[in-house]
Design a protein around this nucleic acid. Sequence first.
DNA 1: TTGAGCATGTAACAAGTTACATGATTAC
DNA 2: GTAATCATGTAACTTGTTACATGCTCAA
Lengths: 186, 186
Amino acid sequence: MALEHAILVSLLEQPGSGYELARRFDRSIGYFWTATHQQIYRVLSRMEGDGRLDVREVPQRTRPDKKEYSVTAAGRAALSAWLHEPIQADTVRHELAVKIRGAAFDDPAALIREVERHHRTHADRLTHYLAGELRDFTGPQAPAPDPSDAGRELQHVVLRGGIAYERMQLAWLEDVLTTLHRLASP
Amino acid sequence: MALEHAILVSLLEQPGSGYELARRFDRSIGYFWTATHQQIYRVLSRMEGDGRLDVREVPQRTRPDKKEYSVTAAGRAALSAWLHEPIQADTVRHELAVKIRGAAFDDPAALIREVERHHRTHADRLTHYLAGELRDFTGPQAPAPDPSDAGRELQHVVLRGGIAYERMQLAWLEDVLTTLHRLASP
DNA sequence: TTGAGCATGTAACAAGTTACATGATTAC
DNA sequence: GTAATCATGTAACTTGTTACATGCTCAA
């Protein structure tokens, strides 16, 4: 039930509506957890029912009204309890790797385009992460490093994880392409 | 529905029972896709009903009888069709990263033990993968490299991906530990 | 005799995906 | 006028998880 916890963290960092959360899950939180707006609305309702969130109706003149959620003391306590219990190391689910092993029973060369496409996707993500790092952490416009701002330091280390992941992924996809080309023209 | 495809690939590499598949999902296939025996049995039944798998009852003298599954022509065709359609790049779900960002609202130092535990888990996985690589691909006992054996080459490149992932993960967890220690004793 | 390994399953539930549905505003 | 953005939701379905359940063999 990690979506619940991801929502608690995000709303503690900044209260917001379901729609706003969905956008955050396409950006910063999306570096390490994804969720669609349908999932988010469902979980928000449940968490409000459980007393972990408060809602405030925010009337807006030009846009439809929104429901701004914030974390209650009970929500904070639930997050804290979860932080203190051990979790399992995440299991990997890498669909492209299934395809690569499956290619042995089909035409390996036919996968080259697909792998190139994935390479571009990961290159784009890396560019996006690096731009975010420059903007928020290491660039000249970014606030000065402040070792007493734990939240910011922790956000940065998680972002560095995303960057390391994309770099590793790109290097591996290049290895895959070399292998596929070797198999296609021996 | 990638579990279905992972099962097709695994059974093409070698026919086997649900139990045997479950063990493979703890080892080689587990490098890039995980599944429990409950999931596997459910999907095997469905795929047999769909005509993608054949079953053969194998009586065994000492052990309980087993059902050995193998891929039908229809199953092979389904896999091939899937291999030719594009898939989305996998989305990341990294629970530990949720915890790390959540630690800003709790005690960051309390996470150190947990992160160390994850570091040990990934170090163990890396050791395991490297042993497998030595045994099956690069060691003196391993069969000689054979560029015409596409299956073996593809298995190796996927294993290299697993190794790269674990190495990246270990380096990042060390970065996280340094950050947490800095926050705990500034 | 106790536990590990082999072997297969059901039931209930939680989480995630896809499709459908509405309706306003703003920019081109 | 048409597409994008803001904003919220329902319904149906597929996947994945957890707990329960059985029963045999082999080794310590």
